[in-house]
Every structure is written in C-alpha cells, then in structure tokens.
C-alpha cells in the first residue's frame, strides 16, 4: 500500500500546481469582489480537490493496470491506498478552503467565526471522497471511459433538476428538495451518508478488483 501511495502522491505533486493556481486565482477573485458570498469559494475549492485527485484514480487504468498488479500490491491494499490518497487530497483542499474563507472574511473587515469557518462546507469534502470512490469503482469495473458516462449522467440529472426548478418553481416536490439544503443539521446527515457510501464503495471496489482480469 505504501508503494502505491508513494506513486500516487509523486504524480499528484507534478500535476497539482495547475489546480492550485486555479484555486488561488478564484480565491483572489472572490476576495476582491465586494459582497461575494464566500461559501461559493469553499464549494469551488472542494470541487477542485476532486478534480486534482481524479487523475490519479483513473491513471492506473489508463496505464493498463497489468504492470502495477505484478508488483507487491493486492486488490485490498490497492483500493485502500486510493482511499487514503483521495482523503488526503480532500484534507489538503479543506485546509485551502478554510484559508480562503479566513482571508476573505478578514478582507471584508469582519471578525471570523472560527467554529463556523471550520465546519462550513465540511460535508462537501466527505461527499467528494465518496464521489471519487464511486469513480474508482466505475473505473475498475467498466474501464476509464465509464467516467465520461458517469459525469454525463450526473450533469444530465443536474440539468433536468435545474430546468424543473426554473419551469415549475412552485411544485411541492421541487420546494421540498430545495428545503433539504436548509434542513437543521443537514451537514451532519450528509457527512454521515457520505462516510457510509464511501465504506460501501470501498468494499465494492475491492471485490471488483479481486475479480478483474488484466
């Protein structure tokens, strides 16, 4: 597992600079725009964390897996290494999001509320770990092209939802869905759901990896 992690982080180090540059540019934009909702920057940074990590999740499949699986790596240690990797990347980006939020708050001339600052958008990072494990499971089972279908499916779902929200803003179920975001302690429930999903997806990815032929 340590060898796979070493490989992943060495590749990550070489590609993360571009992602960080985008994050810094966006953070600067957020901080300079008066009255901009800083929560958006937290969401953006969390999303960029997933973008930075997804390359390594798919890279082994692109390289053919075969050589990697002749090294001292088994299915379980491989999937666990990926889980540790995506979680670590999300921790990096969680820290980055907090720094962005803190700087933005200070530049706005407000006093930072530290507990709120630490917890804001936390579920998003757990959600990204779950999403990345979902992508890994798809890549192992269906190949790297499945990411495109998965992403396409997610984008279509979001588009359909947005169209419905715009065309039928008064429908009860749309209102109910939108109200989920304002549900008390929704962050805690979402975090718990993401952790459970991650655990399930990790087991599934190990199962697929064990039965995979290269």
């Amino acid at each position: 597992m340590r060898g796979v992690l070493e490989k992943d982080f060495r590749s990550y180090r070489k590609t993360v600079l571009l992602t960080l540059a985008l994050v810094v540019l966006y953070a600067a934009f957020c901080c300079l725009m008066p009255g901009f909702d800083l929560v958006h920057s937290v969401l953006f940074v969390g999303w960029m964390g997933a973008v930075a990590a997804v390359n390594e999740v798919a890279d082994d499949e692109r390289n053919g897996y075969a050589f990697l699986m002749t090294l001292p790596v088994d299915a379980r240690s491989y999937v666990l290494a990926k889980l540790v990797y995506v979680t670590t990347v999300q921790v990096h980006f969680w820290i980055l999001a907090r720094v962005t939020l803190l700087v933005g708050t200070l530049l706005d001339g407000k006093k930072p509320d530290i507990p709120a600052l630490l917890s804001k958008g936390l579920a998003l990072h757990f959600g990204m770990v779950a999403l990345l494990m979902l992508i890994l499971t798809f890549v192992i089972k269906f190949g790297v092209k499945s990411i495109l279908y998965l992403a396409g499916g997610l984008v279509m779902l979001v588009c359909v939802f947005c169209v419905l929200v715009v065309t039928k803003p008064d429908a009860n179920w749309v209102d109910a869905l939108l109200r989920i975001g304002r549900f008390p302690h929704i962050g805690i429930y979402a975090t718990a759901a993401a952790i459970i999903a991650t655990a399930g997806l990790t087991r599934l990815a190990v199962h697929f990896m064990r039965n995979k032929e290269f």
């Binding site: 340590r2 060898g3 992690l5 070493e6 490989k7 060495r10 590749s11 070489k14 590609t15 890279d59 082994d60 692109r62 390289n63 053919g64 075969a66 050589f67 990697l68 002749t70 090294l71 001292p72 790596v73």
Partner: peptide, 26 residues
C-alpha cells in the same frame, strides 16, 4: 517475481528517481 510487461510502467510523469522511492517502499 520480477516482471517486464508492456504498458506505461508507473505513469507518464514518473521518473527513474521517483521509481527508486516507490520500489524502496514496495
């Protein structure tokens, strides 16, 4: 077991120096 098979080894951006660090851990 030592293996040579086709493909991209450990990744496009991995150097021989990186390979040393990876193999040391494996």
């Amino acid at each position: 077991i030592g293996t040579v098979i086709g493909g991209n080894l450990l990744g496009d951006f991995i150097t021989a120096e990186d390979t040393i660090a990876i193999l040391r851990k494996m």
